[in-house]
């Protein structure tokens, strides 16, 4: 049974793992989490990203959520911003493709073109 006291241990582990403070992270991974995103399955996508980030010990990215991105029919949408603010938009993301995107884009620095909005075909 977990107790709040366990958090101290986790906190210390997290401290040793966090390379820099949040503001300096290399990437910002944003999942659209408005009514449209949630109904389309954004929650399992976010979960997959968070779990994989913990498993693979990804420390160079923040995974966050935002509201409606404005293209509800293409949800779930994941946007990845680099330090310069350049944005890559991935659309119709599934938990499986989310993990691929995290590995390729965030861990290896390679944009996964086939899942981006530019390559989206109806």
């Amino acid at each position: 049974m977990k107790s709040i006291a366990d958090l101290k241990k986790l906190r210390d582990q997290a401290k040793s793992m966090v390379e820099m403070r949040d503001a300096n992270k290399e990437y910002r991974v944003v999942v659209g989490m408005a009514t449209c995103g949630i109904a389309a399955g954004a929650k399992p996508v976010l979960n997959a990203l968070v779990e994989e980030a913990a498993n693979a010990k990804v420390t160079n990215a923040n995974i966050t959520q935002t509201g409606c991105i404005g293209m509800c029919t293409l949800e779930p949408i994941v946007e990845i911003y680099n330090r310069e603010g350049k944005k890559t938009t991935y659309v119709k993301v599934t938990p499986e493709t989310a993990v691929e995107i995290l590995h390729s884009h965030v861990m290896e620095g390679k944009v996964l073109e086939e899942y981006t909005i530019a390559n989206y075909k109806k």
Binding site: M1, K2, I4, A5, D6, L7, K8, L10, R11, Q13, A14, K15, M17, V18, D22, V50, E51, A53, A54, V58, N62, I63, T64
Partner: peptide, 25 residues
């Protein structure tokens, strides 16, 4: 939670996973 975590964010993936399990349990 913040009292225990000090300057570590709840959004740290390992903390989020722990917290979900904690609430579920």
């Amino acid at each position: 939670l913040k009292n225990e975590l000090e300057d570590v964010a709840i959004s740290e993936p390992a903390i989020q996973i722990w917290l979900t399990e904690y609430i579920n349990e």
